[in-house]
Design a protein around this nucleic acid. Structure first.
Lengths: 141, 141
DNA sequence: CTAGTTGCAAAGAGTTTGCATGGCG
DNA sequence: CGCCATGCAAACTCTTTGCAACTAG
């Protein structure tokens, strides 16, 4: 997969890199990139390829059947736990030391080996707690 | 919602309670309960009602578009973090003290307030680690 | 009896796929 | 020029909904 670098693929990758801090649905991506001339199928197919290459991570939002994707630049990214904000949708990495401590703690106490690549912690981020009214597009109170 | 206790509802609730430790898709539930004479629509409708009552929790499995449900007996359940095993699908509660420590730690270090109700940690549980030593992709030791 | 429930089938939402055309290398 | 990638639309999967028949209280 990914033998040619097509216009669509480049546009998609740029877009994902620029929005590396938020969870994106295939439909949103397609909508935003539609003016660039990229079909929804191309979005899905490229994302699947990027996912296989480890450049994109998929994560479901609690209670939604839509799948969300996010750029996952480096390998190290997958060693980090992700924190996803319910309010603004942004995702950030948890400090490695913290993640490490958490993983160890859970393993010790529960005998459970955490899979950092697949785990996303949900909550409300610092900015949203501070602003408290950072409301994002199409999001009602 | 839930004004009458129908045969279907009772069967569903029993089933959910019995399988309180695993994540169940609507289809699996319907399949397992089909001999009891309950349609998939009834499954969905009852689950939606139970969910509204807080007796069922829904959670997406990482990287799957299917929604999974799980019995969530008590209120306290929602104050506990959940650990879900990728191998066997079982879910268990994280020790409250551990969860508390984790939440505090994240808040202190990242300014991120964890939503315990929506967060599920993925990994491999003690039993599966003991039984088989299946080692999968990107899993930390 | 009467309103909540059910089953069925049709409608939706989101994702995947077959096929002919188009474009990267 | 050959093969991969794209676009379109049809197929799929999972979930929701309309409606007439059914049933718990």
């Amino acid at each position: 997969m990914a033998k040619y670098m097509t216009k669509q693929r480049r546009v998609l990758m740029d877009y994902l890199a620029e929005n590396a801090d938020s969870l994106l649905s295939a439909e949103k991506i397609a909508a935003d990139l539609e003016p660039c001339g990229i079909s929804i199928s191309a979005v899905y197919r490229n994302i699947a390829a990027l996912e296989a290459e480890g450049k994109v991570r998929r994560s479901g939002k609690a209670g939604s059947r839509t799948v969300y994707y996010q750029y996952s630049a480096a390998e190290e990214c997958r060693e980090k736990l992700h924190l996803s904000c319910r309010e603004c949708g942004k995702t950030c990495h948890m400090e490695p030391r913290e993640a490490e401590r958490l993983a160890r703690s859970i393993k010790t106490h529960e005998g459970f080996v955490l899979d950092r690549a697949e785990t996303v912690l949900y909550g409300v981020c610092r900015d949203c707690r501070a602003g408290k009214r950072v409301r994002k597009k199409g999001e009602s109170e």
